[in-house]
């Protein structure tokens, strides 16, 4: 017993918090990368996360391709979709106020969510967990489902992999350079427009991967990303969009904080992240990891 809270409940909520944190981290990571190069806050990120989950569901229903195939196909498909969106729409907004990018992607999110709501209603469908990850292990103080460990592990690997790519590889150095000064990078003979397309595609592919990871835990439903994206925005405001490592750390820690709130003061569990955001803004307006403007 810790402060009159059963230890099972505490660890259970901590685990759920870590899971939510994995999704916050994956999504805010994609947002940060896209914002860095395109100067667009991708409001469609939640809808593309939903799209990833739906691609996985389609693959298993119509093509008999299971979870492991979906882990590859869904990010690829959504990434290609993202590349098309960038080429057709977002490219035309370069040089305009970034608010237009937010509004355009908000419109895209409405279209995607509306179309899927028409097809499937809003209740959603279950997605089966892969056999190899079913079950769990009984620890002395709690039951630990295997799938949850898998989600946290994959998320951590992807997050740090992305961080390593941007910080340690040539492609990453181009990306960072183009974020600082795209004109100069293109003067060195690097195809910046293509890099922008690839970056957007990679960012939304991360969202789709998060969607596949989420599919067996939550139901696959058209609005699964709609509320999530707003929480992720708050996470991004808290962490500051300037730093990739920052968004990973903030994502996981806010997930844990949310889990703990569910144990000690459940009424506030939906709002705690927003409260933290308000406090951070009052104390340190640039965000925890942001550069002071």
């Amino acid at each position: 017993m810790v402060l009159a809270v059963p230890i099972q409940a505490l660890f259970g909520q901590l685990l759920i918090g870590l899971i939510n944190g994995s999704f916050y981290a994956l999504l805010s990571l994609g947002l940060a990368i896209i914002f860095g190069l395109l100067n667009v806050v991708n409001f469609a990120h939640g809808a593309l996360y939903m799209l990833g989950a739906f691609v996985a569901w389609f693959l298993s229903e119509k093509a008999g391709i299971g979870y492991w195939g979906a882990m590859v196909v869904a990010p690829l498909a959504v990434g290609i979709f993202g590349a098309i969106v960038e080429r057709l729409f977002l490219r035309r907004l370069s040089g305009l106020d970034p608010l237009y990018g937010l509004l355009l992607t908000f419109g895209l999110a409405l279209i995607l969510q509306g179309v899927f709501s028409n097809w499937f209603g809003s209740s959603g469908m279950p997605y089966e967990m892969p056999a190899r990850l079913q079950g769990g292990r009984a620890l002395p103080f709690m039951f630990l489902p295997n799938y949850r460990i898998w989600v946290i592990g994959v998320s951590l690997i992807i997050c740090f992999g992305t961080w390593a790519v941007t910080e340690r590889t040539r492609l990453g150095s181009w990306l960072r350079a183009a974020t600082e000064n795209a004109a100069l990078v293109s003067a060195f003979g690097i195809n910046v427009p293509r890099m922008i397309t690839i970056t957007y595609a990679l960012g939304v592919a991360l969202a789709a991967l998060a969607g596949v990871l989420a599919a067996p835990i939550y139901r696959v439903s058209p609005l699964m990303g709609a509320d999530l994206i707003i929480v992720v925005f708050a996470v991004v405001v808290i962490g500051g969009m300037g730093s990739i490592l920052g968004s990973i750390v903030t994502g996981f820690s806010l997930g844990i904080l949310e889990g703990l709130t569910k144990v000690f003061y459940p009424e506030a569990s939906n709002t705690v992240i927003f409260v933290v955001m308000a406090i951070v803004l009052l104390v340190r307006p640039a965000g925890l990891f942001g550069k002071q403007a």
């Binding site: 907004l93 355009l104 509306g114």
Partner: peptide
């Protein structure tokens, strides 16, 4: 939900 889709499309066209 087609209202939502239409609104989204208007957003895209306007922007």
């Amino acid at each position: 939900s087609w209202v939502t889709v239409t609104e989204g499309a208007i957003f895209v066209v306007c922007v």
